[in-house]
């Protein structure tokens, strides 16, 4: 419940504050968001698997976002930023799908 509340609070905060993303962060924020989404779905799946651990969740959430951003940053430095961010999004998308499938199997037995 607190997690859902936090989500709502964050959305409202974003709408109300209307912050501008600093230019240096702009390329990495969307990747970090996708990585965080992946961590969120992973956490939900772990919860249903009965192996949820808050420490693991927090660490994986933060490290996923940071690593994804780092990969894109490295790709930008190497001149393959666009391709690498595409690769990261694809990988994270696949993981989100598989996590969502596992959650679905848990909830609906199908």
């Amino acid at each position: 419940m607190i997690a859902v509340l936090g989500l709502v609070v964050g959305v409202i905060g974003g709408i109300v504050l209307q912050p501008t993303v600093p230019l240096s962060v702009q390329p990495y924020l969307p990747i970090a968001v996708v990585a965080a989404l992946d961590a969120l779905f992973g956490g939900l799946r772990a919860l249903l698997d009965g192996i949820f651990d808050d420490r693991v969740f927090v660490v994986s959430f933060l490290s996923n976002a940071v690593v994804a951003a780092l990969i894109v940053f490295l790709g930008d430095q190497l001149g393959v930023g666009t391709q690498l961010s595409t690769a990261v999004v694809v990988v994270l998308g696949i993981r989100i799908f598989s996590n969502a499938a596992a959650i679905r199997r848990h909830l609906f037995k199908a």
Partner: peptide, 30 residues
């Protein structure tokens, strides 16, 4: 899991979810 408890894990998850929601909204607006 959704039942509100003052446990550390719930607070952390809430904090991270808030962060995520904030980031999503900011990114969409951007």
């Amino acid at each position: 899991a959704l039942r509100p408890r003052g446990s550390r894990s719930q607070l952390l998850a809430g904090l991270l979810c808030a962060l995520l929601g904030f980031a999503v909204v900011v990114q969409v607006r951007q």
